[in-house]
């Protein structure tokens, strides 16, 4: 149940580990809504390893992107060059997202709670925030409409995995149904959270539970770094270290100049 405490057992950097573990979680999924950064790398890696048919949809409306160089934003010029389709906003948010075409949506945020609701709006009070964050963008739509949601967190800390959100930007479907049972939200919400310490997986009741720790990480390290009393899954695995077959395409083809593998 506990991992060894030897460091550097994975033979890779933290961002490589996050990408590899996220890519493994994409097994069996076909259409992924993801932003720039590690999620994009994870989709590309899944495509290069276990899921050659996986497709990424960008918030800018691009589907079937074949960028000649790594894009810097979700709406960068190389995403349009050679793309299979560029949809308008109405089609993207209405037909693709709300229409239920997305298997997995990747989301981030400053705070996540144990039921997988996310805050990307403010730290502190809304009217007079300590820190004003960007806001929802399409996150509320992804949460409400993707079949499931993955979250990648570079730093697992009690201030990011919190008991109570300062602001609920993207409510978990459970929370949405409780607040208003007459509003049809179709998705399962956050099913998987990949952090620098391990993996949280939603239990049947929707609560995020610890299902794996990365090599060298103790279960107690993760519970201490979580802002709510973290439940353990029936079995807590130790993450299989990334293999050469996973790291090689990531390092040599997907992000060779280490734009996001920092």
């Amino acid at each position: 149940m506990t991992a060894t405490s030897e460091p550097n057992l994975t033979g890779c950097t933290p961002s490589e580990l996050l990408t590899v573990v996220s890519a493994r979680c994409l097994r069996g999924r076909r259409r992924v809504f993801a932003g720039i950064g590690l999620p994009t790398l994870a989709v590309a890696l899944a495509q290069a390893t276990t899921e050659p048919g996986i497709e990424q949809v960008y918030e800018s409306g691009v589907t079937g992107a074949h960028p000649p160089r790594l894009p810097q934003t979700i709406a960068d010029a190389p995403l349009a060059t050679g793309a299979e389709c560029i949809l308008g906003m109405h089609a993207l948010f209405g037909y693709v997202l709300q229409g239920g075409r997305i298997d997995v949506g990747f989301l981030g945020g400053a705070q996540i709670d144990r039921w997988g609701s996310l805050n990307s709006t403010v730290i502190g009070d809304y009217a007079q925030p300590t820190v004003r964050l960007p806001g929802s963008g399409g996150a509320a739509e992804v949460m409400a409409n993707a079949a499931e949601v993955f979250v990648v967190l570079r730093r697992h800390t009690p201030t990011s995995l919190v008991e109570t959100l300062d602001f609920c930007t993207s409510p978990a479907p459970l929370r949405a149904r409780r607040a208003n049972p007459n509003v049809g939200t179709t998705g399962r919400g956050v099913t998987t959270v990949v952090t620098n310490l391990g993996v949280l997986t939603a239990a049947d009741d929707g609560e995020l539970t610890l299902s794996a720790v990365h090599p060298g990480v103790e279960v107690a390290d993760v519970t201490a770094a979580t802002g709510w009393p973290l439940r353990l899954a029936p079995e807590v695995a130790v993450t299989e270290p990334p293999t050469r077959a996973e790291l090689e395409p990531l390092r040599e083809r997907i992000d060779p100049t280490r734009v996001y593998l920092r």
């Binding site: 109405h90 609701s117 509320a140 609920c168 993207s170 929370r175 949405a176 149904r177 409780r178 939200t185």
Partner: peptide, 24 residues
């Protein structure tokens, strides 16, 4: 976006499924 669509289409409102349970 829905506000633009309602404005462009001369509709009294535009419906979306988002927002239930959130603080906005």
């Amino acid at each position: 976006l829905g506000r633009y669509i309602a404005g462009a289409s001369h509709l009294p409102f535009y419906p979306v499924r988002s927002y239930a349970g959130g603080d906005l």
